Amino acid sequence: MAGTGYHSVFEKGLFNDQVILVTGGGTGIGRCIAHELASLGALVVIAARKMDQLENTAKEIRLLGGRCETMTLNIREPVQAQDLINTIVTKHGKLNGLVNNAGGQFHSPASKMSPKGFATVVDLNLMGTFYLCKAAFEGYMGEHGGSIVNIVAECRNGFPGMVHTGAARSGIINMTKTLAVEWGPYNGIRVNCVAPGMILSSGMKNYPEKVLDGFLDNSWLNPAGRMGTESEIASSVVFLLSPAASYITGINLPVDGASSLSKGDAKANTAQPSFNPAGSKMPPYIGWPQQEQGQDQGPVLKELDAPEPMMQLYAKYKSKAHKL
């Protein structure tokens, strides 16, 4: 099956003999992160509530020659977080990396959001991330070191339509900075964030059609002129977990085509650039195996499971992607 594995830009064997936990690793960005880490030699443990999705991803990784284990987890339960970390360390003797990717939210204006809805998303995203970080520290990293990457969302200019997740993700960013300072002296623990902008991902299936239309209408309103790919998030996570980031801790890395620095196509404001909706000048990075129909090269993966308009957009991106 040579040549069929995930096409990472990083050196093969980079994470040999390392054990890395990815929460929410059964679908979307988490699945892509798990694939890339496994392609680089890591034993990847993916954890989430839905075992069927986890098993599907683990099967894909194993068919491509990687190592992947699955475990159930509700990140809102601190005892489950502790038990998960203890199980991994007992079985494998270590936990070198943690990627806090699991989470969720729903679209709603703040004026129509209930207190319960707000609290639920904050509990899931902010508290769930804290539970995993604390469990990893107490169960292994406090004594042996390690690296943590928290997946948030680009929210430096607020998060209209999702005030609950904006508040939670901002809290995670601040928590990450605090943990980087407090835990750095404990055998060099590094804690960082990756903040995706608009990404073509299976997570898009969770939003109503009207919201998706808004995403598509504005997908080019940034200097990159496009949305991002799951691979572009995964590679950022891999970098922060790698020795190349040995002197990087406490940062929030936006992966958003600079959308957070721009205001889109402001025709009435000559101080702002007018972005071109006709197409991006920045080729995407897609790490999924490039296979042609009819070739006997091993398993063919379904790279993306998103609403049809976004699948069409992804096909265009793929035709312009960097060839690896």
Rank of each mutant, 00 (worst) to 15 (best):
G279C: 02
E230L: 08
D123E: 14
S114H: 09
E308M: 15
A42E: 05
F137C: 08
F106P: 06
P309A: 10
A168P: 04
I189Q: 03
F10R: 11
W288H: 14
R156L: 05
H92I: 03
V89W: 02
Q297L: 15
L261F: 12
S201L: 06
L14H: 08
T249S: 10
S236Q: 10
G228F: 00
L179Q: 06
C32V: 09
Y247N: 12
I75P: 00
V89Y: 05
M141K: 04
A168D: 00
E60W: 13
G188K: 06
I75D: 00
G104H: 04
E232R: 03
P208V: 08
K267C: 07
V121Y: 06
T229S: 12
G228M: 00
P289R: 07
L37G: 12
N187K: 14
Q293Y: 14
V191Q: 01
E182N: 09
T229M: 07
H322E: 15
A168L: 09
E69A: 10
T120P: 01
L301N: 13
L221D: 13
S170G: 12
V300D: 10
L301G: 15
V238S: 10
P284E: 02
I61H: 09
S219R: 10
L240F: 02
L37D: 08
A180N: 06
T27Q: 11
A167F: 10
L304Q: 06
W220N: 04
A48Q: 01
G97R: 00
Q18L: 05
A153Y: 05
E182V: 13
C155N: 13
V121T: 10
P243H: 06
T87D: 11
G24D: 05
A34I: 07
S39L: 07
Q105C: 14
L313Y: 15
G279S: 04
G264A: 09
V89H: 04
L37A: 12
I189G: 03
I46M: 08
F106Y: 14
L40A: 09
Q80A: 13
G197E: 05
K91D: 02
T176V: 11
M310H: 13
L84H: 02
M198P: 02
P109G: 12
P160L: 11
M198D: 01
L63N: 13
Q312I: 13
G171D: 05
H164S: 13
T165W: 01
K210E: 15
G26F: 03
E11A: 14
V44I: 04
L63Q: 14
L216P: 04
V163S: 14
V163T: 13
M175I: 11
A321G: 07
R169C: 03
V79H: 10
G117M: 07
E77M: 07
I46P: 00
C155M: 15
L126E: 02
P284H: 01
L37I: 14
I151D: 00
I148F: 01
N16L: 07
A58W: 06
L73Y: 00
T129K: 00
F15A: 08
V163Y: 01
S231M: 03
P160R: 11
I85M: 06
Y186I: 08
G294M: 10
V238K: 05
T70G: 00
N269W: 15
